[in-house]
């Protein structure tokens, strides 16, 4: 099966007067149709930037300086803004952390759904209106038939995010990019929204790129997961393997540092230090100064993703002939 979205060696720079910052460094990802791929990492790792670069919404002065992004085999990273805008509505939907950035406060939610569907699906007024109500029912808005004529400010935060999900899915895109869709919500609402996103993606066969810092959300929602560190993808694999049997020392450390809900330990495993700032990424493997398993090669050669146990990891431990594994 060919990939729905294929990202090859995507690099994004931020030119500043103190030099170019390499915010994304040869990031490669692919998503199969209907698959949910999680992108996880700490703040500044480049996970949101990856989503933004894919849908052509990089904030200036960020620029794509290398690599390519293909949707169903067609390159979309060099398209003119007008064409990209059409792709964003029709083929790629988006859900952001703050629902208010997506919703227009001046229009009723019904009108926004109707307009999106009419633009992309060419429905009649009546059909579109009926479908809009149906979408609100699907995303679990009580009293959808009346609420369709309400304005965004009349909904609570959790309900707004549901509306945004409906808006992202209503044009029946093949891919949805969800950037921290639950971070601004309360714990008990988060679970509902995550479950909703997952259910709808499955029902409509939509692929999802889910960007989040919350490993719990990843674990519950995704099929596969990519772990990012300092602008690079350092491990990719099935969610079970990455969460329970990670290969990369960073992923191992990250998983061990999450306090468990089911048991209590005296001391959490911790990774000392912090992720380097973009202007001070060390040569070789970006993780080498914090890595407990560092050896000579890590300090000057940069590893690419390579097969490692059950996943793919960018780590020299798994290089052919490595004696350290």
């Amino acid at each position: 099966m060919s990939a729905l979205l294929d990202v090859q060696d995507l690099s994004v720079d931020f030119p500043t007067r103190r030099g170019r910052l390499h915010a994304l460094d040869r990031v490669s990802l692919s998503i199969q149709p209907g698959e949910i791929l999680g992108v996880v990492g700490e703040s500044g790792a480049g996970k949101s930037l990856t989503g933004a670069a894919i849908i052509g919404l990089l904030e200036p002065p960020g620029v794509i300086v290398g690599g390519q992004v293909s949707l169903e085999g067609r390159r979309i990273d060099k398209l003119p803004p007008e064409q990209m805008r059409r792709i964003r509505g029709r083929q790629i939907g988006a859900v952001f952390q703050d629902p208010l950035t997506t919703l227009n406060p001046l229009y009723t939610v019904g009108r926004q759904l109707v307009e999106t569907m009419q633009t992309h699906l060419g429905l009649s007024d009546r059909d579109a209106k009926a479908r809009a109500v149906q979408w609100l029912v699907d995303v679990g808005i009580p009293g959808a038939a009346e609420r369709v004529d309400a304005y965004p400010h009349e909904f609570s935060g959790g309900m707004r995010q549901r509306v945004v999900i409906a808006l992202a899915l209503c044009a029946e895109p093949k891919l949805v990019i969800a950037d921290e869709p639950t971070t601004a919500l309360d714990v008990s609402i988060q679970a509902q929204v995550i479950a909703l996103l997952r259910r709808l993606a499955r029902e409509h066969g939509t692929a999802v790129l889910l960007v989040t810092h919350d490993m719990g959300v990843i674990a519950e929602t995704c099929d596969r997961v990519a772990v990012m560190y300092a602008g690079r993808v350092i491990e990719v694999g099935s969610v079970a393997a990455v969460v329970h049997r990670p290969s990369h020392p960073y992923t191992e450390g990250l998983m061990a540092s999450i306090p468990a809900l089911r048991a209590r330990v005296d001391r959490l495993a911790q990774i000392d230090g912090a992720m380097p700032r973009l202007n001070a990424i060390p040569p070789g493997c970006a993780y080498n100064p914090r890595c407990p398993k560092v050896f000579e090669r890590c300090r000057h050669d940069r590893p690419n993703l390579m097969p490692a146990k059950e996943t793919q990891a960018a780590c020299w431990l798994y290089a052919e002939g490595a004696v350290h594994g």
Binding site: A191, I194, G216, E220, V239
Partner: peptide
């Protein structure tokens, strides 16, 4: 409800809770 709502690492790979 709160305890049940926490997304759980143990769920990874299994069917959604």
């Amino acid at each position: 409800l709160l305890l049940d709502a926490i997304p759980d690492l143990d769920a990874a790979g299994g069917v959604g809770r």
